[in-house]
């Protein structure tokens, strides 16, 4: 089993497609919706999918075949080390426990693999060291 985070982009006419149902039913994928937005320009869905590597790539191929934009993500948030003061304001804000204080060095540790791209650390960072890449 492997895990991937993908960002999906829909045109307005596609927002009624039951794509998540197909991903579960046809490709046996487990998923967690991290973020979903619907706007005039269309929709965006940030999914964490879990399944066999071949099933994940087949699922992605299906999405592309029906015209959904697919972008795989490895990093959502970028930390500017020259601005981070290691204060730790973001630690209690992060809902995914992706940010931790190292109590030996008092440096803030950021674990990209746990990040759900919510952006809360970005708006709460006093020295503006965190930037959303999504």
């Amino acid at each position: 089993m492997s895990k991937k985070k993908i960002n999906l982009y829909f045109r307005p006419e596609q927002v009624n497609e039951a794509i998540t149902y197909v991903l579960v039913k046809e490709y046996d994928l487990k998923f967690n919706i991290l973020r979903a937005d619907v706007e005039e320009k269309g929709g965006r869905l940030l999914l964490e999918v879990e399944g066999r590597p071949s099933q994940i790539s087949n699922g992605i191929a299906y999405l592309q075949s029906i015209g959904v934009g697919v972008k795989e993500l490895n990093e959502y948030v970028e930390k500017d080390l020259s601005r981070c003061t290691n204060c730790g304001m973001c630690v209690s804000i992060c809902p995914a426990d992706a940010i931790e204080m190292d109590r030996q060095t008092w440096e803030v540790r950021f674990d990209q693999s746990k990040c759900i791209a919510c952006g809360l650390c970005v708006s709460s960072c006093p020295p503006q060291a965190m930037r959303l890449k999504v």
Partner: peptide, 12 residues
Amino acid sequence: QTSSLSSYYKAR
């Protein structure tokens, strides 16, 4: 959960 606004890292 707690968060510090002052940097203990820099204080050191």
